[in-house]
Design a protein around this nucleic acid. Structure first.
Lengths: 217, 217
DNA sequence: GTTGATTTTAAACAAACGTTTCATTGCTCT
DNA sequence: AGAGCAATGAAACGTTTGTTTAAAATCAAC
């Protein structure tokens, strides 16, 4: 009958309707959440018939999971963990890692993708473990190992919290920018671009762990 | 007919049905969000008739706004901004402020209240500006002023980002605990209680801004 | 040009949604 | 007791939801 219940397979000859559906679903789910977004709105925005979601994905929930995966692959651009240059001190490695972290959070091109992924992370559903397994956990573990190298002898508990301090700083600008703009004004927050933020987080973090950068005023 | 469109007034003789409705709505909205929670589920959990939401609040949206306000007042316990002791150095004032911030984020008794408020903050809707105006903005401004006292001469941009670094650390444990548990295990994150977190955030922050506490190993 | 599979379409489905109606209850005054 | 008002109850309202149906359209292969 139809390739509905099991995905039509990434046979690489996937029709373009499927892709447009994913694109529209990404925007809708990112903006209104799973329950807030309707399949009618999604299919309308994608320019396909409403039955297409059943045809290509089976139902709304499987469309959502596939959309989160799709958004995640778009947001990360395929890069797993940033590859460090061979000759670099542990502190420099940590700094590069933080800059990469901030870059991924900010990347304006993939804003909606990131927004959807973040939404799923705030309220972990059936698609969360996929993103965690193949993206977040490797990043978190890599950060912890780099911190461990810089801070040998620190107990696991404080090591974990130090990592959370780094991630917390980075996540803030992604998760709470609307509120920050509501408090301090759109202009005041708008000037905090990628470079300003990453410079600040690097300086703040390195100073906090006892390895202040050179020109730390 | 009924006191529906305008609230029945806090005549202090408010019936107990209204309160139960708010309580049930708080839990439902916190767990499933605005669109995900249904008035049937709420009224069922509250043990009242479905028409009660129309009778007491007019419609679902006004119930939601009132619930967020209610949750906010519950979460903050009525305290506006922590009152500092008269004899305290600027750094001590900042430390006390951070500890208060962490305490408010953690407070397990008001967990659902805080969860609902945070959910509204992540996706600002019609109830966000109320919470921002009478709770978040005063806190944010107070934090900035205390940072300004400790760090005189720092330009506004970096002052803002320093505040975001503090808030970002505190928010992390509230907004991303489920994901953190998914990554590192429930046990590893569970041991990070209020005291451990506030001690860490204080030490991390004070060190980062060049005022390390005494016993900073 | 016809066959057969794949994709798209319009229409309909039952279920759940928020909301309203109206009758009924409980209570307080006179 | 009876009138007036606040509160509750059961049932239905019209929409919108996700999903399905079956016919029409598109396309490749023979």
């Amino acid at each position: 009958m139809t390739p509905s219940d099991s995905p039509p397979e990434p046979t690489d000859a996937t029709p373009e309707a499927r892709e447009r559906l994913l694109l529209a679903a990404e925007a809708a789910f990112a903006e209104h959440g799973y329950e807030g977004a309707t399949v009618r709105e999604i299919t309308k925005r994608a320019g396909v018939n409403i039955a297409a979601v059943s045809y290509y994905f089976g139902d709304k929930e499987r469309l959502y999971v596939e959309t989160v995966k799709y958004a995640h692959s778009c947001a990360t651009g395929g890069l797993p963990v940033p590859t460090p240059p061979p000759d670099a001190t542990p502190v420099q490695l940590l700094e590069l890692f933080i800059r990469e972290l901030v870059r991924r959070m900010h990347a304006p091109a993939r804003a909606t993708s990131m927004q959807l992924v973040m939404r799923e992370m705030s309220n972990p559903g059936k698609a969360a473990h996929v993103v965690v397994d193949e993206f977040v956990r490797p990043m978190a573990f890599a950060l912890r190992e780099r911190l461990r190298t810089v801070l040998p002898g620190l107990d696991e508990k404080r090591l974990l919290m130090t990592g959370f301090s780094v991630i917390g700083q980075c996540l803030f600008y992604r998760q709470n920018r609307p509120i920050a703009e509501l408090i301090f004004g759109k202009d005041a927050v708008g000037v905090l671009d990628l470079e300003a933020v990453s410079n600040h987080v690097v300086r703040f973090t390195l100073t906090a762990i006892g390895h202040p950068p050179e020109g730390s005023s």
